[in-house]
């Protein structure tokens, strides 16, 4: 009985220290990416190629989802606003929800499951098939050649994708609100233009999506690089990328929002 308790405490302790150790390793890995970023900046073609794979291939899902989210916002927003007789404020509601929150957050969640998982799987498979080892033996650092370009591609793609998501969302809200329901077109756009602030709303949204880009890309490349080099190891790492980065995005969103919009 007593030994069982001791054993379970010990097991718990080991789990905790393992996690902390892994977090430390992930942080060192983060630093290593920065130290070895020279190649991906000097030979920017490498990064461009990865932007194609991560960014462009996520485009369809981001655009379509943005459109639907905007359309739903149009419906829900109108329903609420018209109770207070202020349905022409629909433009503000749609734009602010998208630019401040839904654009960066939903685009990041989609990006994590579309591109983050792909990055993890790709790097993990390169590890499992000894391609990373082979590269090392050819005197080419895999962090510089494989990891850093994918990291920067993710970081650069994320704000652009979030912006496109918001733009599609505004368009979707316009379609539903103005074309379908019949909110006045002039007040929809002019109120939106008057109330969305560049610094306060747009810039903060861009900062958010940039931070999410760093989080997703870091988790994705780390999980791939750290994956156990077997088929199960890679599939487990892919799942962890999606779960961990989704949680991290939502937590980071709360913290960033608390700093950015203090009801000033």
């Amino acid at each position: 009985m007593f030994t069982k308790i001791i054993a379970s405490i010990r097991g718990l302790g080991r789990r905790v220290t393992d996690r902390i150790w892994r977090l430390g390793f992930a942080s060192r890995f983060f630093l290593a990416i920065f130290l070895h970023s020279g190649t991906s900046l000097r030979r920017f073609g490498l990064t461009i190629r990865e932007i194609y794979f991560t960014g462009v291939l996520s485009l369809i899902i981001i655009l379509v989802s943005g459109m639907f989210v905007g359309m739903v916002l149009g419906l829900q927003g109108y329903d609420t606003l018209q109770r207070y007789g202020s349905s022409e404020a629909l433009g503000i509601l749609v734009a602010l929800s998208l630019v401040r929150e839904l654009g960066p957050v939903v685009a990041a969640l989609l990006f994590a499951s579309r591109a983050g998982s792909a990055i993890t799987a790709e790097i993990g498979l390169m590890k499992a098939t000894e391609q990373l080892s082979a590269m090392e033996m050819m005197a080419v650092n895999p962090i510089a050649r494989v990891v850093a370009p994918r990291f920067w591609a993710g970081v650069l793609s994320m704000p652009l994708l979030a912006a496109l998501f918001s733009a599609m969302g505004v368009f979707g809200g316009y379609l539903v609100g103005v074309k379908l329901i019949g909110v006045d077109e002039g007040s929809f756009w002019s109120q939106m233009q008057a109330s969305v602030d560049f610094r306060e709303d747009i810039l903060n949204g861009v900062i958010k999506s940039f931070v999410f880009g760093v989080i997703i890309s870091w988790i994705a490349v780390f999980e791939g690089y750290d994956a156990e080099p077997t088929a199960e190891g890679v599939s487990g790492a892919t799942t962890r990328t999606v779960v961990t980065s989704s949680l991290a995005i939502l937590a980071a969103d709360f913290i960033l929002t608390a700093f950015m919009f203090r009801g000033a």
Binding site: T129, S133, A134, M135, E136
Partner: peptide, 27 residues
Amino acid sequence: LRRRMGMLFQFGALFTDMSVYDNVAFQ
């Protein structure tokens, strides 16, 4: 030193995202 060594891995470890030509040209 590694530039002056060549290693053939057990399963080849060719870069799967590059053509044969690019694999050989890599180094």
